[in-house]
Design a protein around this nucleic acid. Structure first.
Lengths: 94, 94
DNA sequence: ATCATGTGTCAGTAAAATCTGACATGTGTC
DNA sequence: GACACATGTCAGATTTTACTGACACATGAT
């Protein structure tokens, strides 16, 4: 999740998405100002991290649109949380 | 700050540092199990992000030891915060 | 003087993340 | 059929990040 957020484009995507409410890939690419394949890549990472949700829909004129929206989340980022997160990585002797 | 935390080694460093209370570079390198130059690099990034603090001290036998400790911080990681963070990146039309 | 231990830096390499420019596929409209 | 607009994927180039193996310097003990 942290590495998903460690990127300027992805932060901007989150911001735009939050402002727009929801948007589909091609439209969002225009809004953010990056290429569609690149956006697709970033959206993939954001979705894997559970930061955005996607939903395929059919537009009135029959086009398949993949809508994205920011997920609801709230994490208290503290040293203790990091200790907990580090434990997840892999068991180590210490 | 987010990109500083987006790395397994750095998470482990934070965890070890939190567990030990404080530690100096060479010792910490042994505890974490990575080379000293590499640790130095990571500590640099962590310190730039304000996640750790350093303090030069002289040991009883005259060696200069650079002690590191985790800083106190607490950030509520939410969509709104990200919007705020994105605004920091660079002004854009939109 | 040599050794052990500490500090930092730096050039060069290895690995990972990022980005681009195709390609393939689908639908409705001109 | 050609066009406009949507979806996705993928190979290859580029850029960042991570890492290693020196090097330089300082101190106290042998």
């Amino acid at each position: 999740m942290l590495s998903a957020l460690a990127n300027p484009h992805r932060l901007r995507i989150m911001a735009t998405l939050k402002a727009e409410g929801r948007s589909y890939v091609s439209q969002l690419a225009r809004q953010v100002g990056i290429s569609r394949p690149l956006l697709h890549l970033h959206l993939q990472k954001l979705e894997e991290a559970g930061l955005v949700t996607s939903q395929m829909e059919l537009s009135p004129d029959g086009k398949a649109l993949n809508f994205f929206a920011v997920a609801d989340f709230a994490v208290e980022l503290t040293p203790d949380l990091l200790v907990q997160a580090a434990a997840t990585l892999s068991a180590r002797s210490e």
